[in-house]
Simulated assay, not measured.
Amino acid sequence: MNHTAILNLTTDLGYKGFKEAYMRQIEDIAYHSLGFEERLYQLLQAQDVFLNNKRVFMNLKLSKIKNKQALLEDLDYDPKRKINKAQILSLASMDFIRARQNIIINGKTGTGKTFLAESFAIRAIQEGFSAYYIRTATLLEEINLSRIDGSYTNLVKRFARYKLLILDDFGISPITADDATNLFEIIEARNQMASTIITSQLPVKDWYDYLQNNTIADAILDRVVNSSHRVFIDGDSLRPKYGKIAKDYE
Rank of each mutant, 00 (worst) to 15 (best):
P79I: 06
G110H: 02
Q101K: 15
L62C: 05
D76Q: 07
T111A: 01
I88S: 12
E73V: 10
I65L: 15
L71Y: 12
K64R: 13
D78Q: 13
K64L: 06
K68E: 13
Q101A: 02
I104S: 02
L75D: 09
N102Y: 04
I97G: 02
D95T: 07
M94H: 04
K82I: 03
L91G: 10
M94P: 02
E73D: 15
Y77K: 08
N102I: 00
P79C: 09
K61F: 05
N106G: 04
K66M: 08
L62D: 14
N84H: 13
L89Y: 12
K66F: 03
P79S: 09
Q69V: 08
L71D: 14
R81T: 09
I103A: 03
K61S: 13
N102M: 02
T111L: 03
I88G: 13
I104L: 15
A70V: 05
T109E: 03
D95W: 00
K82V: 03
R81Y: 06
R81N: 11
D76W: 05
R98E: 11
N106S: 11
L60D: 01
N106A: 02
A92F: 00
D78F: 07
L72D: 12
R81A: 07
S90C: 06
D76T: 05
G107A: 03
K61R: 12
K64H: 13
K66I: 11
L62Q: 15
N67P: 04
I88F: 10
R81P: 10
K80D: 12
L89H: 13
A86I: 12
N67K: 05
I105Q: 05
L89A: 06
D76G: 11
G110Y: 02
A92G: 08
K85E: 15
L75I: 12
L75P: 10
K61L: 10
K61P: 00
L62H: 13
I103C: 04
A86Y: 06
N106Q: 10
L89E: 15
K66P: 00
A99D: 13
K66H: 11
A70P: 07
I83K: 04
D76M: 09
Y77F: 15
D74A: 14
K82S: 10
I65Q: 09
Y77R: 08
L71H: 13
L91M: 07
